[in-house]
Amino acid sequence: MLERKSALVGALQSGGRNGATGQRRLRIGETRGWNLLQVAAFPATLEELEQAVRPLLGGDLPTRLGKAISVNGRRLLKTGPEQFWIITRASEDLTTAFQAAVTQDIGTVTPLSHSRTCIFVEGLSARELLTTGIALDLHPNAFQLDSFALTGLHHTPIMIHRSGDNRYDLYVMRTFALWAWEWLTDAALPYGYEIVLPL
């Protein structure tokens, strides 16, 4: 009865466009089927947090900002000095387990699965496309595989993650998702793009 509906439901049906040379050099779409959990310790409790969640994850939380790691099929990102994003498959909801393990004196747990929409861009021209809106050095040597950054897209906050050699996932605010999609597909016009429908 209360099925989920993405912010991009209509937009995804609009079909791709040929670029200036008649080709479609980019693939653009929405990645669904994930959950996002924000977990944060206080400055003095980071170690306790790490210990508390280790058994739930079956591995360690990342120690470096800016590089996502994969542990047991989950993606872990260190997004702040004591803050982490845990991205899991939609079939797995760790909220309750984390809330039980991370007591309020150790840290806080905030589900954010609905607050973001994930748009991906793939292709040899993906970097060139993204530079029209993102003020980051995306040179493949500077922003390597699995790098991520919390940055801005025309004054809206986004998280960009390089999830493949030529593939970038953009986690945009859900209320800005359609705007971000329109911006992206407009900037993609000269390259031409294919819209990949979600499975």
């Binding site: 509906k5 029209t132 025309h154 004054h155 800005f176 359609l178 705007w179 911006w183 900037a187």
Partner: peptide, 18 residues
């Protein structure tokens, strides 16, 4: 650049917009 007309600034939409 492309920040003209309705694209001058980002548009924010409710989940019930459509």
């Amino acid at each position: 650049g492309r920040s003209v007309g309705k694209d001058f600034r980002p548009t924010r939409r409710s989940p019930l917009h459509d």
